[in-house]
Design a binder for these strands. Structure first.
Lengths: 134, 134
DNA sequence: CTCGGTGCAAAGGGTTTGCATACAT
DNA sequence: ATGTATGCAAACCCTTTGCACCGAG
């Protein structure tokens, strides 16, 4: 039988740790890769955006951080890897986390048709309280 | 007072009509701009992708076609402009339309917090019947 | 010492835009 | 005749990748 391709032992680097820390430090801000890069550079001024992307990919793959595409073109990273939904304010852009509400009706009708639903992405859009009162 | 910027009278061109026709002809396939461009070129071989994009933007703005970002980076266009959700098969990529199921729970909790929800985007992922039986 | 991670810079894919020309009005 | 829409190509934005060097193991 073929040698299975060796599992490639992974190293933990300063950059990796700092990227993870940056995602977590951003709290609820759902930072972009660029924002994360800026933050990491405060400590390690020479990190490249490429490295940030590579480490983000790895962290997402390992389930340590989440990614969300919230309607714009850029990916936003999220310290909460568990499935959850988002609310985006169309005036100020703020992003709020929501507990994942499995959309029961849609799932039921798909199941009836023989399809299997394994995940979902839900983004709610509107105006946040602050923008409404302004 | 300043002259208000004149409302720019819009022209209807062969290209515009063909782009709309192409979106509609694709039926339930949710074509990409590139696919639409290919179809339009069967009639008008010299249309540019740029023109297709400009016309798609206009049609979306006018509410004649819908756009959906279904997890990948490419925008997919939809002859059904009314709000509705989507199911994407992770094996074969097929896209199924769903009647819009307003995610009541999420909206309620946001409303309680003072936010106003005006729209949503829901994508369900899974395996379609055909891929499950294969 | 190894070989996976890094920095850099260039390539890539999707979409937008500047410009001279074509054409709907 | 007027000026919007077009075709072309270059620019854009976000992300990925190739390569030589660096440094964790």
């Amino acid at each position: 039988m073929a040698n299975r391709p060796r599992p490639a032992r992974r190293r933990t680097t300063r950059q990796l740790a700092l990227v993870l820390a940056a995602v977590r430090a951003a709290g609820t801000e759902h930072p972009t890769a660029e924002e994360i890069c800026r933050r990491v550079r405060r400590v390690l001024p020479r990190v490249s955006l490429g490295t940030v992307y590579r480490n983000l990919q790895r962290l997402v793959g390992d389930g340590l951080v989440g990614v969300a595409h919230l309607g714009s073109r850029v990916a936003r990273y999220d310290p909460t890897p568990a499935a959850h939904d988002h609310f985006v304010c169309r005036s100020c852009g703020r992003v709020e986390d929501l507990v994942a509400g499995p959309p029961a009706a849609g799932i039921r009708s798909l199941h009836r048709a023989g399809h299997e639903v394994t995940a979902h992405a839900l983004v709610l859009y509107g105006r946040c309280r602050d923008c409404r009162s302004a």
